[in-house]
Design a binder for these strands. Structure first.
Length: 380
RNA sequence: UCCUCGAUAGCUCAAUGGUAGAGCACUCGGCUGUUAACCGAGUUGUUGUAGGUUCGAGCCCUACUCGGGGAG
């Protein structure tokens, strides 16, 4: 299922076979929380921007339109017309991001819906049931993503509970996959390592979850307020304790620089809202750094976002035109920016894989980082 | 010609006679398993003109200019 093709230091070039096709790693998953990549990007656009895996969210799809609806319509793949791999996040991040709207108990989490205030209970079993109804390729374990500034005592207790939840997730997913009427009997389950910035807690947790023989292992709870150095340090400490015969997923990360550092430390899967959200906000990634198309200096700039870029925006439109669309709040402006940013990310991952194939990832990484520190002066 | 209402930031409008503000626009910044086409910061004024009253006027008085509405 997971096969390492080549290694360079700790960095891995691998492939991951699923019922929805083979994923070439390292890979960046394109975030479509509610079953759509924000910015009016259709699944029919995804081939053109080299998307391998789409990511959706359990909590959000449960709230709207409801996982029961999606199950009746044949599952998320059919619903959104996308036949390649889909990873569903479990709702664990909402324990963090909707902190003001939930209460955590041993059995699970009580949310007040961010849409209408309705009371929603989600525990490990509910998260697995919802994800089974969505029939995603990869389900994520239901965890608590704790804030990076949480104190040690809180993190210790939280991680232990997240471990107990993981055991329940595994048991429930096995049960669901064996049901006769399950939509995807081969649904995979990834566990999630937690422990904030306390590497001893993280390592102990990594050891214990590794024994559960899950389909993949994620490092969660990073890029939630700690410094980049702390994040890289945690990866240095923890990744070696995760199973080497399973893919490693660094959740919610990150900037192009974060990804290059993650690959170097052995990460296979990444995802982040940056290319989509920043695209909608007019911040564009280029090999010379990040640019903000809202800035007045682009008013008469006839160049594409990036010279030589093959994305649908750069092949045809100027910075000046796209800037106008953004300022006029025309949907096309956001759409073109999101397409460009996802193309940039997906292309960078392709370059990373090529470099690993050729054994020159170290050189590639150094040159890429130097370039992005260049003319625009903003490290993306 | 008369009556009446109005004139304050680029725009639309606030502001007991007591330090002129807001929204939008504009300029810039932020965003890491999306509560985010979002959030934050900043620039902008001879308060239509000229006088007067007052310790003090965007506000009260007079004239004028321009505009809306009405009457003839």
């Amino acid at each position: 299922m997971y096969r390492i093709l080549r290694q360079e230091g700790r960095a891995k070039r691998a492939e991951f076979k699923t019922v929805h096709g083979t994923i070439q790693t390292p890979v960046f998953m394109n975030v479509g929380t509610v079953g759509a990549i924000k910015g009016a990007v259709a699944t029919s656009d995804l081939e053109e921007i080299k998307t391998q895996v789409e990511l959706s969210n359990t909590y959000h799809l449960h709230v709207r339109p409801g996982d029961g609806v999606i199950r009746q319509l044949g599952g998320l793949h059919k619903f959104m017309s996308w036949d390649k791999p889909i990873l569903t996040d479990s709702g664990g991040f909402q324990v963090f991001s909707l902190a003001g709207l939930r209460k955590i108990r041993e059995e699970g989490v009580f949310f007040n819906s961010h849409v209408d205030g309705r009371r929603i209970f989600m525990g490990p079993e509910e998260s697995m049931q919802i994800q089974s109804n969505l029939a995603s390729t990869i389900a994520m374990a239901f965890d608590e993503c704790a804030p990076s500034k949480a104190d040690r005592g809180y993190v210790q207790a939280s991680v232990e509970r997240t471990y107990r939840w993981l055991v329940r997730c595994k048991k429930e997913m096995e049960r669901l996959n064996n049901l006769e009427d399950t939509l995807n009997p081969h649904q995979l389950l990834f566990g999630i390592n937690q422990g904030a910035v306390y590497s001893d807690i993280r390592i102990e947790h990594a050891r214990r979850i590794s024994e559960l023989e899950l389909d993949g292992y994620a490092v969660g709870g990073l890029a939630v307020g700690e410094t980049h150095e702390e994040m890289y340090h945690i990866l240095d400490e923890v990744v070696p304790f995760l199973p080497k015969d399973r893919p490693t997923y660094l959740m919610g990360v990150g900037t192009p620089a974060n990804i290059l550092e993650g690959v170097e430390r052995g990460v296979d899967f990444f995802d982040c809202v940056y290319p989509t959200r920043n695209g909608r906000h007019g911040h564009l990634y280029t090999n010379q750094g990040k640019i903000n198309l809202f800035n007045a200096k682009y008013e008469l700039d006839e160049r594409p976002i990036e010279e030589g870029c093959g994305c649908p925006a750069c092949r045809r439109y100027s910075r000046a035109y796209i800037r106008h669309l953004l300022k006029a709040k025309e949907m096309l402006g956001m759409r073109l920016c999101v397409l460009h940013n996802l193309y940039f990310y997906n292309t960078m991952m392709e370059e990373i894989r090529d470099a690993l194939d050729k054994g020159c990832f170290g050189t590639y990484k150094r040159q890429k980082l130097e370039g992005m520190r260049g003319e625009n002066g903003i490290m993306p």
